[in-house]
Design a protein around this nucleic acid. Structure first.
Lengths: 124, 124
DNA sequence: AATCATTTTAGAACAATTCTATTTTGGAGG
DNA sequence: CCTCCAAAATAGAATTGTTCTAAAATGATT
């Protein structure tokens, strides 16, 4: 665990929980001006392998990193891109009841409007 | 509906149901040697807008196009990449019971091993 | 036959991520 | 306190699927 790696982790832990690489880079660079995008990627990968964080890929190509590595689902706000945590219960079991195929894992992203954006919509 | 567009649609309809753009391109070029990748993309977009096919984006960046536009879920074989249809029931309702956030839509891909690959695994 | 929007085409552009090769770093052993 | 070495960081190029741009072709409608 190097200083730069710790910085990447800290940035994520100091956030609401889900950030995209470029935003992590932007914030980490404030702590370490010498920080470079490749280092952010290297360390995000390393931290994922270590199980300290989790990578969440969405269907529109955006990658988010989650400071909470325990399994749960996610919603993305269609207005601002903010990612929120969801607890949808034991989907593995629910899905298994509906198909004979083995369920190794699944990717699930719910599209929503976050409370903040919902409030702004009502104003307008 | 032009000849090229019809060809793209036909390729998809003549398939098992889910193809990636490069494979659609490969097959469409057999029908129309002059076919170009940009035309395939143009027409896939147009056919999606027309509601005749559906685009399915996966978290690892692969795009599939589905000849069946009615809503259902999908599984992808981790061995061969083949996409299979799933019917998992009314997930919109199921998810709504678990969260207060509005559920506009969701992207779901299950990772599985298809029957063919499962058979091959047992052989080995 | 003329017009004009749509489609097709070729090729450049794009953007996020990964890769490659070089340099730097920091700890372990002497 | 050095020296060495593996790991990490860096710069910048490469990759890849998709989208964009501008020009050429097409085809339906006057």
């Amino acid at each position: 665990m190097t200083v730069k790696r710790a910085a990447v982790l800290q940035v994520l832990r100091d956030s609401q929980g889900h950030l995209q690489p470029d935003e992590i880079y932007r914030r980490a660079k404030e702590l370490y001006p010498g920080m470079v995008l490749a280092t952010v990627y290297n360390n995000l990968h390393a931290l994922c392998e270590a199980g300290l964080i989790r990578r969440i890929r969405t269907a529109d190509g955006a990658d988010y990193y989650d400071k909470t590595p325990t399994p749960h689902e996610h919603a993305v706000c269609t207005e601002c891109g903010m990612m929120l945590d969801l607890e949808l219960g034991d989907l593995h079991t629910a899905f298994s009841k509906k198909t004979d195929l083995p369920i190794l894992s699944y990717d699930l992203i719910v599209h929503t409007v976050c409370p903040d954006c919902k409030a702004k919509q009502k104003q307008a």
